[in-house]
Design a protein around this nucleic acid. Sequence first.
DNA 1: AACTTAACTTAGCACGGATCAA
DNA 2: TTGATCCGTGCTAAGTTAAGTT
Length: 585
Amino acid sequence: EKERRPFIFHYILIFSSCCFFVRWEEEKYEDGVKWKFLEHKGPYFPPEYQPLPDNVHFYYDGKKVKLSLAAEEVALFFAQMLDHEYTTKKVFRENFFKDWRKEMTQEERLLIKDLDKCDFGEMHAMHTAKVEARRNMSKEEKQALKEANQKIVDEYGYCLLDHHKERIGNFKIEPPGLFRGRGEHPKQGMLKKRIQPEDVIINCSKESKIPVPPAGYHWKEVRHDNTVTWLASWTENIQGSIKYIMLNANSKLKGEKDWEKYEVARKLKSCVDGIRNQYLLDLKSKEMGVRQRAVALYFIDKLALRAGNEKEEGETADTVGCCSLRVEHITLHEQLEGSECVVEFDFLGKDSIRYYNKVPVIKKVFKNLKLFMENKQPGDDLFDRLSTSLLNKHLSSLMPGLTAKVFRTYNASITLQQQLKELTNQSDSVAEKLLSYNRANRAVAILCNHQRAPPKTFEQSMANLQVKIDARKEQLSLAKTELKQAKKEAKAKGSSDPKRQTLVERKKAAVKRCEEQLLKMEVQATDREENKQIALGTSKLNYLDPRISVAWCKNMEVPIEKIYNKTQRDKFAWAIDMTEADFEF
DNA sequence: AACTTAACTTAGCACGGATCAA
DNA sequence: TTGATCCGTGCTAAGTTAAGTT
């Protein structure tokens, strides 16, 4: 099936409408309507549980125990994870054991009372062997497996939305297993239950071919709601939240939404000065709530903090964003490392990623913070008169569509644009330009605190690269000597011998190629070192207006493939198609 | 409730060295 | 000796699903 991008046409109409007054409005549906026709095959269910073979056993207190099917399945979830740190954590083990016991028969429950007496060794070994066997499959077997998977994608991976075939993002029902919460999650280790067709709501057009549930089962519900974009949903048993099956990022619906997001952020660019002036004035307000709002906004704008919704205690890991900061998360320094009025932040943000930063702030903010912290305990809210809904309500009154996260998008994108301007030179090589691009990207990732665990093999791979660089240096000096030699010989015998001349040319080319390769590797080493703990992908995919990158590529004559891989080019197809070199965010 | 953002896990693939046939 | 191909390693891309925002 050929790719298609109808929404690009749509955008072009919107844009050209400024100049030509094209009647593009007809393209749009009435408010809230996302589609007129939606047809799909429903979600793909994970395979049924396969009981243990007869030669694999579970032992309790040294004795062989044949578990019931349900208990065995859950035991295997744990056994499979034995290599993982999770299974050493107290909370994880306790949650697992509690939920496992719920799956046991009365008899099993009476016997199995202590997780420490459980021996999952054979089950774990079986799992490891399976992983190994899979790795060692023959080419033919791998090919067969690949084809089988492709068949599933072909059948379940696409839907028909308003006459167009669209890729679905996640068409598979999440398989059962043990919940892997991030950070100190109070529910880690709990049993994430198997989803049955009876749990699944299907959303599609009335007049479409309704997806058929697996034989012998029924859907929970089939509905026809064209004001939402999801194709199927179910409620997950850990938090009781709803999971959705939605379209791929390269779809019209997602692409349009993405484009809108950046348009809102660009609108903020045009009024951010006024908004900044306003919150600077608000720092002096008589109303405490307004002052707290102003300080929070100052942080969100300056530091690109997330909004920070309140969270239910005991349901999730203890993490915070701006509005939910507590007194214990900041330390005030009148004087620190040569700066005045420094705020030291130390808290766990989304995914329990630590945010640590020392930031000089203006006096008024500093004074307000002191005031907010007066007579409070470490565990008290810093902004006790503020919530994300209050903050967002205020923001939307300043500009339609403005919310806290728009500042993150805006500051990320504007930073990229500035950094690219500052760091890149037309005369640089492509490798150097790419290093500059990555550095600009990195500045954004640091601003947004996008971290990653350093790769396990980091040190080794840096060392390997260094070895290669040294080898190339050697090669280069050799090539240079050879060039000198060739030149000498060419001169000595006079320029009449064309063979000598071509040899000189060839040696020159070799030196140049060698130099280029060396530079490329040295640049790569620098880039990798600087990127050790920084994740560039998140900002690239979610915060940086792709049109900035596309325009930069055009200006710098860098092929777009150098900065966006296939998936990213698909997702940003709209930007790649519409953006001219003179685009400005 | 619906949707975006996020890091982690796994799959797949490119690359370079080893091995083998011609 | 040379070119082809095999094979393991290490990295990137894709997939997964948790955790945010509105």
